[in-house]
Amino acid sequence: MLNALSPTSVVASRAFFPPLLAAGFLLLLVVLASLLYGAGPVSASDAMAALMANGTEEAWFVVTELRLPRTIIALITGLALGLAGALLQSMTRNPLAEPGLLGVSAGSGFAVALAILLGATTATLTTLSAQLGALAGCALVIAATRVQGLGNDPVRLVLAGATMTGLLLALTSMLMLMDQRAADEIRFWITGSVAGKPLSMLWATLPSITLALVLIAIVARPLAAMALGEKAAVGLGHHPGRIRFLITFTVALLVGSATALAGPLIFVGLVVPFIARAFSGPDIRKTLWLCVPVGPAVVLGADVLSRLIAAPAEMPLGVVTALIGAPVLLAIVRAGRMPSL
């Protein structure tokens, strides 16, 4: 543990594979928990029996038709938000650069609320508007980092993001006042949840997620080079401007997909890279690899909690991720010396 936290990448690289395996194992456990536990009368042992193909029809239904879809959706959401957070933080060299905190999720959320109000019902349309909103949000963030002084100060950037988020939430509330039917739908969606989401939503986002993964494979090496300084990156034959554009596009794809699936979940993009970096050290490529099991585990774990806290109702997933994330944010800000990326 002490070794893993050590900042020197030599030590970190030696301790890279054990954490990756451990995180993968943890993810498996969380997936199992997600299939076994719920807010309903089907208990863990009933669900286990159903998985062993000798349970009741009711248990089989709950496990395969209710818990399995939300498990898959939570996994994809966690993957997307974790990776998006790591990319954004590395690119802006700001450990607080998180899609939720910077207003990217809120932008995406506002776009979806607008789409719902205008009567969008198809999964494709919702996903597209979420991604467009995220793209606009990302563009604003990039613009903000270029403002003198703002880009160098992580906390001020977050303040700018909070302002943005406040404005967008107010606009979203205004939309909700305009139409009662849409308001119910938007309110549910805006607090964040993976329950009862149709799998058609997942199919609509999979192409974007796949494209984003390909793009990450392309930009990971140049991004690592940029961490050494822009001149070094240029020296190694990379084009920082082009890389930055690709990353912005990738983050928008990821955040837009995640938001379309589960609503604007705040703090996930902060917590996941934070945990990953603790084990990977500063190398963005390793951080990204670790985010692959950690992101899904965090979101799915939060979802399992959301079912158990308020049974027979369910706590909104967004509330649980915020409860988990807020202390991490405080820890990073209070840690006196902000880890510079």
């Binding site: 719920g38 309903g40 009368p41 009711e58 027979p312 369910e314």
Partner: peptide
């Protein structure tokens, strides 16, 4: 009325 029920409780 109740809180919004989990879909798992629909059978009730």
């Amino acid at each position: 009325h109740s809180e919004p029920l989990s879909l798992e409780n629909l059978s009730s």
